[in-house]
């Protein structure tokens, strides 16, 4: 298994800087996700690790080997990097059977036929496709093809597994069960994983650590709960989960909502002037009798297991999600009181 070090990596396409000073160490056996909106440079980063894209600057090492270094002029081609890769489009070869697909990396390595067959069968069993070896890919569903692709990526026991949005062509149900399967397999094999996705719940659920990117720049690296509870900046807070951004201001050493002085918070980070007060809808407690802020319910949306409210607090529209399905407890126009928990403050721009 292998550790991956990415140091000061840049990738420029002409005038566009797709990846801007990327630094990351993926520990041996760790599951790291790269998360970010479309076009932020996730794929480009992964393809540089794989060797399909040359870094404009910086160094990438896998295990003991420097595979790409702009300074030293080193560049190891993909076939010599000892990696497995799973593509969004499955990339299962339609002219080979499932077993031939999975066995291909072993064939390249000249593994003897009997051993190859044994390992292919073991791999197919692992991804629950034990019976499907003789089929052709066009006789498989999307989810099955993606499992073939996973088996093929793992069969040669590479040190590193790269996945680029492997689940985004699958339907929602299948996506959930495949998440679980990929995690299971990672636990069993102990392989190091770099996983690219734009789906935050996927990243949160699967990873040891998450790298949040935006416009080519790494915004934060941390464990899922860290990213969620203490986002490094507004972008991360906004991208991960739902959040209210409310206009606030610093008065003395306290922070207030603009036009409201019923409650204030200590200004721990020494912010100045105009600030943004951020609070997640599920971190707000709503009651009919007293609290930090007084507001009026303006809209309600029934979500089944919860109700999504909009509450007007002195002109601030606050989103509140309340567990349970009792939509009549706070009718439109009723006066309610809100208590904010886990409040974050950012500079307003």
């Amino acid at each position: 298994m292998a550790e991956v070090r990415i140091e000061h990596v840049f990738k420029r396409f002409g005038a566009v800087t797709a990846v801007d000073d990327f630094n990351l160490v993926v520990k041996d056996g760790e599951f790291v996700s790269i998360l970010g909106p479309s076009g932020c440079g996730k794929t480009t980063t992964l393809r540089m690790i794989a060797g399909f894209e040359r870094a404009t600057e910086g160094t990438i090492s896998i295990g003991e080997h420097v595979v790409s270094s702009s300074e030293a002029g080193t560049f190891v081609p993909p076939e010599d990097r000892d990696i497995g890769m799973v593509f969004q489009s499955y990339a299962v070869w339609p002219h080979m059977t499932v077993a031939e697909n999975v066995g291909y990396p072993l064939k390249i390595k000249k593994v003897p036929k009997e051993e190859r067959e044994r390992r292919v069968q073991a791999m197919l069993d692992l991804v629950h496709l034990g019976e499907y070896g003789k089929r052709y890919p066009n006789q498989l569903s999307g989810g099955q093809q993606q499992r073939v692709s996973l088996a093929r990526a793992l069969v040669a026991e590479p040190g590193l597994l790269l996945l680029d949005e492997p689940l985004s062509n699958l339907d929602a149900k299948l996506r959930e069960s495949m998440r679980f399967e990929i995690l299971e397999i990672q636990k069993k094999t102990g392989i190091t994983v770099v996983y690219v996705t734009h789906d935050q719940s996927e990243a949160m659920a699967m990873s040891d650590r998450v790298v949040v990117m935006s416009m080519g720049v790494v915004q934060q690296i941390g464990a899922p709960h860290e990213i969620y509870t203490s986002p490094a900046n507004k972008m991360v807070a906004d991208f991960i989960g739902l959040i209210n951004f409310l206009d606030g201001e610093v008065k003395g050493d306290r922070i207030f909502l603009v036009g409201n002085d019923s409650h204030s918070w200590a200004n721990k980070n020494g912010l100045e002037g105009e600030v943004t007060v951020a609070v997640r809808p599920e971190s707000i407690t709503m009651s009919a009798d007293g609290g930090e802020f007084r507001g009026v319910v303006t809209h309600r949306f029934y979500l089944g297991d919860s109700v999504d409210f909009r509450v007007d607090v002195n002109g601030h529209i606050v989103r509140v999600i309340k567990k349970g399905s009792d939509i009549e407890a706070f009718p439109d126009g009723s006066t309610v009181y809100l208590d904010f928990d886990q409040v974050m403050f950012f500079k307003r721009n």
Binding site: E79, Q88, W93
Partner: peptide, 27 residues
Amino acid sequence: MDPTLEEAARVAGASPLRTVLDVTLPL
């Protein structure tokens, strides 16, 4: 042709020439 079909061969260890012979040409 989907280029990832060829990339998949590369990560599986095939050289560019081998990729042409095993994947590009048959497809």
